Simulated scan of single mutants.
Amino acid sequence: MTLIKYLLVGVLNTIVGFGLIFLLMWQGFSPEISNIIGYAVGICFSFVMNKIFTFQSKQASKKANLAEFAKFVSSMLIAWSLNFITLKICLNLGVNPYISQIIAGAIYTITGYLLSKIWVFKKG
């Protein structure tokens, strides 16, 4: 069930993130800059949705919430780094920039879920 919730949040996050990425690219921003801005916005949206809806974290203290946020941001930066490397590889191989963003996004999603479940929001 957690995976289903994560994927639902991911669909919303994809609409927000990729919508912003593609809008920025359409406005003339580079794929790389568009990616950075889109994922920065997406990480903030994703933390709130995954904390409350997906993993139902009950961290009550400010310190625990801050630690959880720091772990989430760290894990998403790892996921995003793998995403960005994938994006650059795809672009260097001549893959269409929009398709490259989708492939890189899949890497981000898989990595983000695993790190969130195993490390960030793990129970007990």
Results as ranks from 00 to 15, higher is better:
2 T>D: 04
5 K>L: 10
10 G>A: 06
12 L>G: 15
13 N>P: 14
13 N>F: 08
15 I>N: 04
18 F>R: 04
21 I>D: 02
26 W>D: 11
28 G>R: 03
30 S>M: 03
34 S>W: 05
36 I>L: 07
37 I>M: 02
37 I>S: 06
38 G>L: 07
40 A>V: 07
44 C>P: 01
45 F>H: 15
46 S>W: 02
48 V>P: 05
48 V>E: 03
50 N>Q: 13
52 I>S: 07
54 T>E: 09
59 Q>N: 12
60 A>M: 00
60 A>G: 06
61 S>Q: 00
62 K>E: 00
63 K>D: 03
64 A>N: 05
64 A>P: 00
68 E>N: 10
69 F>G: 11
74 S>L: 03
76 M>Y: 13
79 A>V: 01
81 S>F: 12
81 S>C: 10
83 N>G: 05
83 N>Q: 15
85 I>H: 08
86 T>H: 02
87 L>A: 12
87 L>Q: 14
87 L>M: 13
88 K>Q: 15
93 L>G: 00
93 L>T: 02
94 G>T: 05
95 V>S: 04
97 P>C: 01
98 Y>L: 07
100 S>K: 08
100 S>D: 07
103 I>F: 09
104 A>R: 04
107 I>E: 00
107 I>V: 13
110 I>L: 09
110 I>N: 08
111 T>A: 11
111 T>C: 13
112 G>D: 15
116 S>V: 11
117 K>D: 07
118 I>S: 14
119 W>A: 07
120 V>H: 13
123 K>R: 15
